[in-house]
Amino acid sequence: MQNAHTTPALAAGTQPKGFAHTPSATAEALEHRAAQNQPAFIGYMPYGFPSAQTSIDALRVMVQHGVDIVEIGLPYSDPVMDGPVIQRAALSAIEAGERIRCVFDAVEAVAAAGAVPLVMSYWNLIFHYGVNAFARDFAAAGGKGLITPDLIPEEAGAWFEASERFGLDRIFLVSPDSTDQRLQAVSQASRGFVYAASRMGVTGERTTLSSSPQQLVERTRKAGADHVCVGIGVSTPEQGATVGAYADGVIVGSALVHTMLNAIGGDTQQVNACLDALGAKTAQLAEGIHHARKA
C-alpha cells in the first residue's frame, strides 16, 4: 500500500513495473472540448433510479443530448454531501434493490454510448467491495475514474495503488475554504481533473451563483491543476454558460435528477415521459455550456 509520502511520485507517473501507463480518458475529453474553445458538460445521475434499466436508459439519453463525461452515482444510505433531490433519488434506488455489482452494466452502457464513464461514490462502498477488486471490475467494464467526495489524498493509499494499477483517474474535491497548501496537495494527487465545489455544503440547485467558484478555479490552477471542473449548484443553461466561461468542465447533477423526479411524479411507470423530459433538459444545458465562450 502506498502512503501519503509516495503520492507525489505516483501522481507524476513514476509507476512500478506492471502498472498501467494509459493516458487519462477524462483529461482527453476535456482537452477535446478545449480544442474547440468549449468547456465539457459533465452530467450526474444515480444508478438504479427509478429502476436499474431506466437509469441506464437515462444515462444513454444524457450522452445522446450532449453530456461528454458521465458521473454514475452509487446510491448510499448515509450521504454527507448530497442534497434532498439526490437523497430522494438514491433512497428510491436502494428501495428498488440497487446493488453495487450491477453498476458495471451502467458503466458499459455509457462507454458504448461514446462518453467517458466515471463513478461518484462514498468511500465506504468501495472499501467494503474491495478497493483492488472494484478497480479491476470497473476498468474491465470500461470505467475511467472515480470521484470520491469523502476521501482525502492522505488517506487514499490503497486507491492510489489500485488506480495506478488499472489506469484509472482519481478525482478529489476542493472548496472555496481550501487553503493553498490543500489545493497543491489535491492538484498533485488528482488525475483527470480537480472537482471544485462551488460552495461549502450539500448538492442542490441554486437560483444564483457567487463569484467564489471562479476564484477557486484560478487558485487551483495556480496550485498546479491541469484541469478544474466546477459543480454544486449549476441548474440552468445560463449558469452553465457563466461557469463554462472559466472552468474546464461544468458539472450538473441535481437539476437532471430533479427533472426525472418531476416527470415521474408518483408513477414509476411514466418512463417515456421521464426520459423525454431528461433529454430536453440535457439539451438545454448542453447548449448553454458548450457555447459558453462564444464571442
Results as ranks from 00 to 15, higher is better:
Thr14Asn: 11
Gln15Phe: 14
Thr22Tyr: 03
Pro23Asp: 12
Thr26Glu: 00
Thr26Pro: 03
Ala27Gly: 15
Glu31Lys: 15
His32Ile: 01
Asn37Ser: 13
Gly43Cys: 07
Pro46Phe: 15
Phe49Thr: 09
Ser51Ile: 11
Met62Leu: 07
Pro75Cys: 05
Tyr76Cys: 09
Asp82His: 04
Gln87Phe: 10
Arg88Pro: 00
Arg101Tyr: 14
Cys102Phe: 10
Phe104Pro: 00
Ala109Asp: 06
Val110Ala: 02
Ala111Asn: 05
Val116Pro: 06
Pro117Ile: 10
Val119Phe: 03
Trp123Pro: 05
Asn124Tyr: 10
Leu125Asn: 09
Tyr129Ile: 05
Phe138Trp: 08
Ala139Pro: 04
Lys144Leu: 09
Thr148Gln: 07
Thr148Cys: 14
Pro149Phe: 03
Leu151Asn: 12
Pro153Met: 07
Pro153Leu: 09
Ala156Val: 10
Leu168Pro: 02
Ile171Gln: 00
Ser175Trp: 13
Ser175Gly: 15
Asp177Ala: 15
Asp180Cys: 04
Leu183Gln: 05
Gln184Gly: 13
Ser187Phe: 09
Val194Leu: 09
Tyr195Ser: 05
Ala196Glu: 01
Ser198Lys: 11
Gly201Ile: 14
Glu205Ile: 12
Ser212Arg: 14
Ser212Leu: 14
Gln215Glu: 13
Leu216Cys: 01
Val217Cys: 00
Glu218Ala: 14
Arg219Asn: 14
Thr220Arg: 13
Arg221Ile: 04
Lys222Trp: 07
Gly224Ser: 06
Ala225Glu: 03
Cys229Val: 01
Val230Thr: 10
Val234Tyr: 08
Thr236Gln: 13
Glu238Ala: 05
Val243Gln: 03
Ala247Gly: 11
Asp248Val: 06
Val250Asp: 01
Ser254Val: 08
Gly265Ala: 07
Gln270Glu: 10
Gln270Lys: 15
Val271Asp: 06
Leu275Pro: 08
Ala283Asn: 02
Gly288Asn: 07
Gly288Ser: 04
Arg293Gly: 06
Ala295Asp: 11
